[in-house]
Design a binder for these strands. Structure first.
Lengths: 365, 365
DNA sequence: CTGTTAGCGCATTCAC
DNA sequence: GTGAATGCGCTAACAG
């Protein structure tokens, strides 16, 4: 037993010091059961005399409740997940729960080990934003439930699975944004941040297929873009959708390539912050001005977007609310403790923030 | 004993199923002590037959080690702390530790209760960015050490206390940024994000005093600004430093007021993102162009800064590295387990990222 | 109301 | 090598 700690007084020591039985000390210190006022005072006095602090770990193994929830996201430094994490901890801590947060860098194997760690640490529940897409490779998402630990999916659904989830209506948001561009007269709209496929894609069907094999949220945004095109009976130009690795640098390249096309897009819809900054960079280097020559709409509003020149029209996601609702749902599951009931899926809607980066399409050149 | 869990097999059950003693099962499952190959195989087989998972909580109460560290910051949704948190979890998880992260909203009472929670949950160490400034109100920072739990301060020092810490050289960074403005010919430089004092301030001494009663990092940045002014023998104009609540809205008001002055600043140094966006807003509404009419330097570089018009010159803080080093220091303390040795204070330096928002001061009007 | 006693799941000492 | 026995700090029946 390696116990290097300076000692940390136990309940027994407090009981001894107060001259009462362990149970009495345990009751007053644990705040349960009956105990007379004077006994309590003696115990309390002895307790803070010795500097007693409850060992929650020991309590947890005894009660089976850790008052800790697990949160697994791709990247806690991403403002989106940061906002979500804050929302979660707000409601969790108000109810006496703390969050163990793990980042997976979007790697499935890290996600799997994160879930294992959380289960082993006996968290009372898990909120997880999965990188898994296909319904295969999702065995780790079953594990918690098998162990009686509620799990709620965050921001990304897994099509085949019937699990609790709280997400954003990405598809509707993307459809709306794209249609706003169309309404302004644009017919050639670049979609930045496509599915990360390697080769070239020839048919729409392949595109949809590729999207479906990736992050749910990304796929939904692409679907919304396609919806809007269909609504307006506009053709899909595969040269106008970015494919490949999702980095700012690749977005830059993609946009640079697109603006050199004969049928260059006159507007861009960027589905993530890095996609947007890459696009902005490319547009500047190409000498194109916003919104006179090209219109633009981004995703993930930030205080920066409002101070740009021009202020950028954005799709704002309710990150805090997403976190809060996920936490509330999870806590209600924890309260219900195993009572079966089918999966709940909540969908929050994103807000369209209109500013000044969308203008009527320029005349055809 | 409320144990609603579907059962979770224990080491004893595995031992029984494998037909060996508990200890043998414990040894192979715990990976310690001697055990013959065939016994091990039997145990392992029984283990995954039953779906055995180690109860780390129970192990922790037994060993006194939880393999969990606590991280307490003001706001996990702030990209700065998000970056720090990522850095921490990178090195922590590589060593088998997970992070319990708590946000305090810069409230001292929440910070205190956060520390208590962490101590009670028996984390192996704590990394904390404190809102405490004066050396009073810091009793909670002693608690962990008394309990044998290492604590390392992050980003903010507490002047009176001799604790481990990893910080940024805010003063030097601010001094450098300000001096760059001076070098460009500016003599009236606005400092946005001052100490949050209520009334009016008449003397430099009061200003320094007010800063000292607040966040260490903020005070250092102000000190660096003052240093640069002194270096150049420039007078301090108290009307050029923002006082009051630190919000984007107040920054907007402060800048709006400053640009209306007879002796209006021709440059601004903004020490935080919200201060910067507030300033940018105010400048735009005042019809002032950057950098022709006013130069500007911000703190906390972001990918947005590079795509602004003009690209903004910024002070970039090594957030990830700050987190990594704090975690490394903490883990080394955990390894050392109580061996006394005096406090280590590491100081990382911020990087000055020169872009295009600083230009020579316009001619005096 | 109080104290005795028996767990919780795992680690660890010590005879066999 | 192996397994019985004891302990970690706390909760929780159960008598008194």
């Amino acid at each position: 037993m390696g116990k290097p700690r300076p000692s940390a007084p136990t309940i027994s020591e407090v009981a001894a010091a107060a001259g009462v039985g362990r149970a009495t000390a345990a009751r007053t210190l644990g705040g349960y059961g009956y105990v007379s006022a004077e006994m309590r005072d003696r115990v309390l006095a002895a307790a803070d005399e010795l500097g007693y602090r409850t060992n929650q770990l020991a309590r947890s193994v005894s009660t089976g409740v850790s008052h800790t929830i697990g949160v697994v996201v791709a990247d806690i430094s991403n403002p989106f997940f940061g906002g979500v994490a804050l929302g979660i901890s707000e409601v969790a801590s108000a109810r006496g729960f703390d969050a163990l947060v793990l980042s997976t860098a979007e790697h499935l194997d890290e996600e799997i080990s994160a879930v294992n760690v959380l289960v082993d640490k006996r968290v009372d529940g898990i909120i997880l934003s999965s990188a898994a897409c296909a319904a295969d490779s999702t065995a780790h998402l079953q594990l918690p439930n098998e162990q009686g630990i509620p799990l709620v999916l965050l921001d990304r659904l897994i099509p085949g699975l019937d699990l609790d989830a709280v997400v954003i209506d990405n598809r509707a948001a993307a459809r709306h944004a794209t249609s706003e561009l169309i309404r302004a007269g644009h017919t050639r709209i670049g979609f930045i941040w496509g599915p990360p496929v390697a080769g070239r894609i020839e048919y729409r069907r392949e595109l949809v297929e590729a999207a479906r094999r990736n992050l749910w949220s990304d796929g939904e945004r692409l679907a919304g873009y396609l919806d809007a095109l269909d609504d307006a009976a506009l053709p899909l130009d595969l040269d106008h959708v970015m494919l490949g690795e999702k980095t700012e640098a690749r977005a830059y390249e993609a946009v640079t390539r697109m603006v050199a096309l004969d049928a260059a897009p006159t507007a861009f819809f960027c589905t993530e912050t890095d996609a947007l900054t890459g696009t902005l960079h490319a547009l500047r280097d190409a000498g194109l001005s916003i919104p006179q020559q090209v219109s633009i709409i981004g995703f993930d509003d930030s205080s920066w977007a409002a101070v740009m020149n021009p202020p950028l029209t954005m799709v704002r996601q309710p990150m805090l609310e997403l976190g809060r609702q996920a936490a509330e749902l999870l806590l209600s599951r924890i309260d219900a403790a195993g009572e079966a009931s089918h999966a709940v899926q909540r969908e929050l809607s994103a807000e369209f923030v209109e500013r000044a980066s969308v203008a009527p399409a320029p005349d055809e050149r």
